[in-house]
């Protein structure tokens, strides 16, 4: 049985108590996308400003939710700010791989899986440069909370889709 400390690392609680890039941006020029977790009612609002080179020049996070969804959104905003959309998408893939690899390990002995899925090895530092986001690794031991951790990324992905669709 995974303990609470596996889930609530200190850095997660730090992001929860002092969320980075919290707030809103004027739309336009910012693009606004809302994401919902219909199971628990968590809401994430992503405000995004891209420049002509598809660089994320500004991002703000609104909405409300539990410590996992809010800290994940805070960490995400800090990680992608100043990065290109392509780089952010790579991080998104790495983050979701980290979540899904462990998801496949549910019911196992609870040790961290080292086997990659789809050719991505989440334990390989070359694939994962997630920084603070690594702290969310423990979430996968609590399967019902994975959706909390991925909500902000799914919302960001939706924002990218909306922007590329024009």
């Amino acid at each position: 049985m995974a303990g609470l400390e596996d889930l609530y690392r200190e850095i997660i609680l730090d992001h929860y108590r002092s969320p980075r890039n919290k707030g809103s941006l004027e739309t336009p020029p910012a693009h606004k996308t809302e994401g919902f977790n219909p199971l628990c009612g968590d809401e994430i609002v992503v405000y995004l400003v891209l420049d002509d080179n598809d660089t994320i020049v500004d991002i703000k996070i609104g909405g409300q939710g539990c410590s996992i969804s809010q800290s994940s959104a805070s960490m995400m905003s800090a990680a992608v700010k100043g990065k290109s959309v392509a780089e952010a998408r790579k991080m998104m893939a790495s983050f979701k791989a980290m979540m899904s690899i462990h998801e496949s390990d549910i019911g196992g002995d609870g040790s961290e899986a080292e086997i990659g899925i789809g050719g991505i090895d989440a334990s390989d530092p070359a694939e994962l440069k997630l920084g603070d986001l690594e702290a969310l690794r423990g979430v996968v031991k609590f399967p019902v909370r994975i959706k909390c951790a991925t909500l902000s990324w799914n919302t960001l992905n939706q924002a990218f889709e909306e922007l590329s669709a024009g």
């Binding site: 539990c66 809010q70 909370r145």
Partner: peptide
């Protein structure tokens, strides 16, 4: 403390 987090601790 968000209800989701409360519930997680209560489960422990």
């Amino acid at each position: 403390v968000h209800a989701h987090d409360v519930s997680q601790v209560l489960d422990e």
